[in-house]
């Protein structure tokens, strides 16, 4: 602050006197001031910090809970089932069956259960889709066809695993049992006429008896699904038969080759068999050679 250049005696007099002047305010001035202070006491700075603190603490707790949940899901043994369930409905049915406690019994009869579970899944899908109306029926059919294709591919994979010669041993011993069960289940399904009013309900196993009546009626309203299911069952059966036939043919070829090798090794037996069969049989070459050799020896002896 610049000092005034012009310092007059009047100014200095008033400055000197008024600097030290004191006027006592009224008695109620402090009360008015304190009331205004108390009115302004709730500081607007503290409330936002508390709210911010609560917000940050809350968000931290939510983030921590989300992280824990992710870690739990990532490390849990059911994670594979959950992730597969997003891609395939059949595996979801598998996992749900394992969760319900059927466990090892399901594993012992996987194909039969798969058939029943698959039908359950198809029924549930049909129930869900049928509610959406006739407009989405076409889309449902294509989706179901895709699922049936997936089911076929998975079934083929499972069967080739079980029938393949590489998996010799206990699994090979189980093969006929599995095939028998499957054929029993399939024979029941194949024997049913397509045009029956409630074919899926009769074709399914005991586990399907738990389906409520509303689901059954909805299933009957969509016969095309039944056809596709039936066709899928048929094709799976044909595939099974073709697999077994190919395996049998392979086995017969191998057995024939083994027999021929055995015959070559055991020449005497082979010759005896050939003698019994006669000279016209081309399979007795060894015998013929022996006999021609003996005949030549006899002729040379006779000439001598």
């Amino acid at each position: 602050m610049d000092k005034p250049t012009e310092q007059q005696p009047l100014d200095s007099l008033f400055r000197r006197k008024l600097d030290e002047a004191s006027v006592q305010p009224g008695a109620d001035v402090w009360d008015r001031l304190s009331s205004r202070l108390t009115a302004a006491q709730p500081l607007p700075v503290e409330k936002p910090t508390r709210r911010l603190g609560v917000f940050w603490y809350g968000s931290a707790v939510v983030a921590a809970a989300a992280c824990l949940w992710l870690v739990f899901v990532w490390t849990s043994p059911e994670r594979s089932q959950v992730t597969v369930a997003t891609t395939s409905g059949i595996t979801q049915t598998k996992s749900s069956a394992q969760k319900s406690g059927e466990g090892q019994q399901k594993e012992q009869l996987p194909l039969a259960n798969q058939q029943s579970d698959r039908t359950q899944l198809a029924n549930s899908n049909i129930n869900a889709k049928a509610k959406q109306g006739n407009s989405s029926e076409q889309a449902n059919r294509t989706e179901l066809q895709n699922r049936v294709r997936l089911a076929r591919a998975e079934e083929k994979a499972v069967e080739t695993q079980r029938v393949s010669p590489s998996s010799m041993g206990n699994e090979v011993l189980e093969k006929p049992v599995v095939a028998q069960l499957q054929t029993q289940a399939n024979s029941q399904k194949i024997a049913e006429p397509v045009g029956q009013p409630n074919p899926i309900a009769t074709a399914t196993s005991k586990s399907q008896e738990t389906i409520n009546e509303t689901q059954r009626t909805l299933i009957v309203q969509v016969p095309d699904i039944h056809k596709t299911r039936h066709e899928s069952v048929m094709t799976s059966e044909e595939n099974n038969l073709a697999h077994t036939a190919s395996v049998e043919s392979k086995e017969t070829k191998l057995s024939r080759a083994f027999r021929q090798i055995k015959r070559i090794k055991e020449g005497e037996v082979f010759a005896k068999v050939d003698n019994a069969r006669g000279d016209d049989d081309e399979s007795g070459l060894f015998d013929r050679l022996v006999r021609s050799g003996r005949a030549k020896d006899n002729t040379t002896k006779q000439q001598k």
Partner: peptide, 29 residues
Amino acid sequence: EANDLLRLVGQLPEGYRTIFNLYAVEGYS
């Protein structure tokens, strides 16, 4: 006394009083 001067200043018209207070007492330029 100071109160006499205060009373005297208080009798000034407000425009003059303000400028006199700022210049002479507070030291404003």
